Computed example of a mutant assay.
Amino acid sequence: MHAIVVSETGGSAALVHRKAPDPEPGPGEVLVDVAAAGVNYIDVYHREGRYPLPTPFIPGSEGAGTVTAVGPGVTDVARGDRVAWAGVLGGYAQQAVVPAERTVPVPERLSFEQAAAVLLQGLTAHFLTHSCYQVRTGDEVLVHAAAGGVGLLLVQMAKLRGARVIGTVSTEEKEKRAREAGADDVLRYEGFADAVRELTGIGAHVVYDGVGAPTFDGSLAALRPRGLLALYGAAGGPVPPVDPQRLNQGGSLFLTRPTMHHYVATREELLQRADDVLGWAASGAIGVHVHGTYPLADAARAHDDLEARRTSGKLLLVP
């Protein structure tokens, strides 16, 4: 088979398209013909070595396709099943071996491309709005990068839960996309904290920040007393060490750095969240916006576009 292999971490040139050994499923695993693989910022962190992995490795933490073989001990997934997965390496390939317990069923009315486009980011938006902070009717929510892949889903899920959503974006085109997703107000990044406090009168109940260093100070300043900042990513660079006293001075604020892994720790929780996300996508309750699809060999170009913030919505690799 062909795959993207990282032998040395670094820039996008580290993503090398080449032949790789045909994989075989071991105990508790399934082999999947990959129909589509999602491109996510965690893939960039793996490629750069920010989240170190033993080399060589095949990147890609999300995909969807058809099960073609099952390993010993697998009883609840069968050959021919339509499945998707998130949080498992190896998606940038024509075939992937995935632990059966980390796969989720894909509804017949949902395409593989839609499933691969929504699962990882959808699970992220789900745990952020339903568990990390349980958004309630009337809450005022600030979503950074509201036209990005996670941002668009955060806007939609927060609206499903009855919130007023304020988004930040960098361009007029992205503002249009955020408003189409349901954002009530859309701001540019400059001066956003003051604008949020003016719009709300006191500040947001929760800020969802996947940007990191460029927005962190403003995110804290945009919160009302006892508000929560969910710093779920660092697309703009990592946040320097923080003095906890700042949380006191801001009004007994809460700060968390969550990751999806801890919110889908059991198969029961994974299936429950995935059933919501894929079900909403299949019914049209949430929209899935694919910005672009790339041949597997063009993985480096997909990473370049993602990092340059030239995209709005999801990027996919199609083997």
Rank of each mutant, 00 (worst) to 15 (best):
residue 158 A to T: 11
residue 178 A to Y: 03
residue 153 L to S: 07
residue 141 V to D: 06
residue 128 L to S: 10
residue 144 H to I: 10
residue 161 R to M: 06
residue 145 A to K: 03
residue 190 E to M: 07
residue 143 V to H: 04
residue 146 A to C: 13
residue 185 D to E: 15
residue 156 Q to H: 03
residue 127 F to H: 15
residue 125 A to D: 05
residue 201 G to F: 10
residue 159 K to N: 10
residue 172 E to D: 15
residue 168 T to D: 13
residue 201 G to Q: 09
residue 164 R to S: 10
residue 199 L to R: 13
residue 159 K to S: 11
residue 145 A to C: 08
residue 138 G to S: 12
residue 125 A to F: 05
residue 187 L to F: 14
residue 128 L to T: 11
residue 171 T to M: 04
residue 172 E to S: 12
residue 134 Q to P: 06
residue 149 G to N: 05
residue 130 H to M: 04
residue 123 L to A: 14
residue 137 T to R: 14
residue 146 A to F: 11
residue 162 G to L: 07
residue 158 A to L: 09
residue 165 V to D: 11
residue 123 L to T: 14
residue 200 T to A: 07
residue 158 A to I: 06
residue 119 L to F: 00
residue 152 L to Y: 06
residue 133 Y to K: 04
residue 144 H to C: 10
residue 160 L to V: 11
residue 182 G to H: 05
residue 119 L to Q: 00
residue 153 L to T: 10
residue 187 L to N: 08
residue 167 G to S: 05
residue 200 T to H: 05
residue 176 K to T: 15
residue 170 S to N: 11
residue 132 C to K: 12
residue 179 R to V: 01
residue 138 G to K: 04
residue 159 K to V: 08
residue 147 A to F: 01
residue 122 G to R: 04
residue 177 R to L: 12
residue 166 I to W: 02
residue 190 E to Y: 07
residue 191 G to P: 08
residue 155 V to Y: 00
residue 184 D to P: 01
residue 139 D to G: 06
residue 146 A to L: 13
residue 200 T to G: 09
residue 132 C to R: 15
residue 153 L to Y: 06
residue 198 E to N: 10
residue 177 R to K: 13
residue 141 V to A: 07
residue 177 R to S: 02
residue 124 T to G: 08
residue 169 V to E: 11
residue 155 V to P: 03
residue 201 G to W: 08
residue 123 L to V: 14
residue 170 S to T: 14
residue 156 Q to C: 04
residue 176 K to I: 05
residue 199 L to F: 02
residue 171 T to H: 10
residue 196 V to Y: 09
residue 177 R to F: 00
residue 136 R to L: 12
residue 133 Y to V: 14
residue 180 E to H: 03
residue 186 V to Q: 06
residue 166 I to N: 02
residue 178 A to T: 06
residue 187 L to T: 09
residue 159 K to P: 12
residue 152 L to F: 04
residue 120 L to W: 03
residue 134 Q to V: 14
residue 187 L to V: 09
residue 193 A to T: 05
residue 129 T to F: 00
residue 143 V to T: 02
residue 191 G to N: 07
residue 120 L to F: 13
residue 120 L to G: 03
residue 193 A to R: 04
residue 174 K to L: 05
residue 191 G to R: 02
residue 159 K to F: 08
residue 178 A to N: 07
residue 153 L to A: 10
residue 167 G to D: 07
residue 137 T to H: 14
residue 185 D to C: 02
residue 201 G to Y: 08
residue 158 A to E: 07
residue 165 V to N: 11
residue 137 T to V: 15
residue 124 T to W: 04
residue 133 Y to G: 02
residue 129 T to N: 01
residue 144 H to W: 12
residue 156 Q to E: 09
residue 175 E to P: 00
residue 142 L to I: 13
residue 182 G to R: 03
residue 176 K to D: 12
residue 186 V to H: 08
residue 135 V to E: 02
residue 143 V to L: 01
residue 150 V to I: 14
residue 177 R to H: 01
residue 135 V to C: 01
residue 143 V to Q: 02
residue 142 L to Y: 09
residue 143 V to F: 01
residue 168 T to I: 13
